[in-house]
Nucleic acid binder design. Structure first.
Length: 459
RNA sequence: GGCCCCAUCGUCUAGCGGUUAGGACGACGGCUUUUCAAGCCGUUAACCGGGGUUCAACUCCCCGUGGGGCUACCA
């Protein structure tokens, strides 16, 4: 057990078998917050011991994702694939003391045994009575029969009967550990004080405790996080829509929004504050306030956080971030004016390509009916557009204020809806958009007049 | 099936024996308004069930029920 003086050392140990997962990201965040809050160290370890499924591109995606979120680590990344000599030492020790042995039962035999046990309503487990004398088959751990109790920092006392575990597998061969042994060896070697991980690992914990004991290693504290759930309340996985950080990144979610949102899924400081910077989270964070129950990933809430952070951003920065969603050769000043009009309306950056299309197209297509306000006659709309065209052509300064001062009196006279609606639709071609004055200011006189003429012809 | 974990509005949650059960997202309504957003105001909506313990249970205990996780020569 870690004492008060023990240095806090935590780790994140993702396996590079898929894109950086939202659940992994939240665990990373919590580990990071705990480390920073307690002036400890945060270690990154890539669990790539399954060479078949591990891929460099996934490792890159995970590391990139962590950095994108604005998190960093103090040691690593270590890779299990580079640590085989370390594992060999421990596996040999277990073998030599007869706590582990080679088991050469085939997978078919094991599956058959399991099926039979389940039919008899027994706990499925393999207790090996055919210990290989040769170095053949898989290496199993001879689990002692005892009660295993550990104190989970989030859940309290958790008890298991090791009897139920059977002789579980720990390595494919002397240099290739399986998950449970790999974690134990690495966590011990890296002097990890607190293992903070998803709840799906609770059932691995007794196996790992047994291994710590067998190898005479110090057992860390454990804290099992509630899971992030899909809308169907099951663990978020590939069969749900968007589970990778990359997808959110590409859709235009801000790291600050992701961090804020994820932090509050399963934790909160007990106040009514909702918006937190990473630094503020570090200050407030505590394991004690983490929930036990899983939390559903609510996209509406994420969208809300994202819109909050989009609004807070300064315009230069926001424009830069929007560039990928705007036409390639766009003029930066023009783009900035466009973005300014959308800043308060955006839920995510990617939306801007649709909502601002009309700013970048010269040839708008008009549905004649759309140009007409409510029940006004087509003739009237036409007349109003002509009136506007004439008035606008006399105005030199196309800034919002001048435009408003010149046009609003007309609108009062001829009807706001009757005048302003056809104007706005002529400018945008859309049912919904920012107001006509803002749009004209961005478009400028020439484009404005051209659009009015064209709309008029469509009627 | 076995083992383990969990349980307050639709969702994220506050609550740690005595509260009109609070906030946020969403939804809905209103104001504003040429439209759509935004903004402001308001409405809706929850303690899974049953036993205890207690003067008093959302809160503590037990049992149900429900949900979830694990059950690999994956991690």
């Amino acid at each position: 057990m870690a004492s008060g003086q023990t240095k806090i050392r935590v780790r994140m140990a993702p396996s590079p078998t898929g894109l950086f997962h939202i659940g992994t990201a939240r665990s990373t965040l919590y580990n990071y917050l705990f480390a920073r809050k307690n002036k400890g160290k945060f270690i990154l370890r890539i669990e790539d011991s399954d060479l078949e499924r591990s891929k460099k591109e996934y490792e890159d995606d995970i590391i990139e994702g962590i950095k994108w979120l604005g998190l960093d680590w103090d040691e690593g990344p270590f890779r299990q694939s580079a640590r085989t000599e370390i594992y060999r030492k421990y596996i040999k020790k277990l073998l030599a003391s007869d706590q582990a042995f080679y088991c050469d039962h085939s997978q078919e035999e094991l599956e058959k045994e399991k099926r039979e046990q389940m039919e008899k309503k027994e706990a499925p487990k393999h207790i090996c009575h055919r210990k290989g004398k040769a170095k053949k088959g898989i290496i199993r751990f001879r689990a002692p029969r005892e009660k295993i109790v550990f104190n989970d920092l989030i859940r309290g006392k958790v008890e298991f009967e090791s009897d139920l575990l059977g002789d579980f597998s720990i390595a494919k061969d002397e240099k290739t550990p399986l998950y449970n042994l790999g974690v134990v060896v690495d966590d011990a070697e890296m002097k990890i004080s607190h293992v903070i991980r998803g709840e799906d690992h609770i059932s691995n914990t007794p196996k790992q405790i047994l291994l710590y004991r067998a190898l005479d290693l110090a057992i860390p504290e454990f804290a099992h996080l509630p899971l992030i759930l899909g809308p169907d309340r099951s663990k978020m996985s590939k069969r749900h829509d968007s589970v990778s950080i990359r997808q959110y990144r590409e859709e235009g979610y801000l790291p600050s929004a992701m961090i804020n949102f994820m932090a509050l899924l399963g934790w909160n400081p007990g106040t009514e504050k909702e918006i937190f910077s990473l630094d503020e989270l570090v200050k407030e964070f505590s394991l004690e306030r983490i929930h036990k129950g899983g939390a559903i990933f609510d996209l509406d809430r994420l969208n809300w956080f994202n819109s909050q952070y989009i609004r807070q951003m300064n315009l230069d920065e926001l424009t830069k971030k929007c560039l990928p969603y705007l036409p390639k050769d766009v003029d930066l000043d023009y783009a900035q004016k466009v973005v300014a009009l959308e800043q308060e309306r955006m839920k995510k950056l990617s939306q801007i390509s649709e909502t601002t299309k009309f700013f970048f197209e010269d040839d708008l297509k008009y549905e004649p009916e759309l140009l007409i306000w409510k029940k006004m006659a087509s003739k009237e709309a036409k007349a109003n557009l002509e009136l506007l065209e004439k008035k606008l052509s006399e105005i030199e300064n196309f800034d919002r204020e001048t435009l408003e001062n010149e046009i609003m009196p007309l609108a009062e006279k001829y009807g706001k809806g009757e005048l302003l609606w056809p104007l706005r639709v002529a400018l945008t071609g859309q049912r919904a958009s920012p107001g006509p004055f803002e749009v004209m200011e961005v478009l400028g006189k020439e484009k404005t007049l051209k659009r009015l003429k064209k709309a008029n012809n469509a009627l």
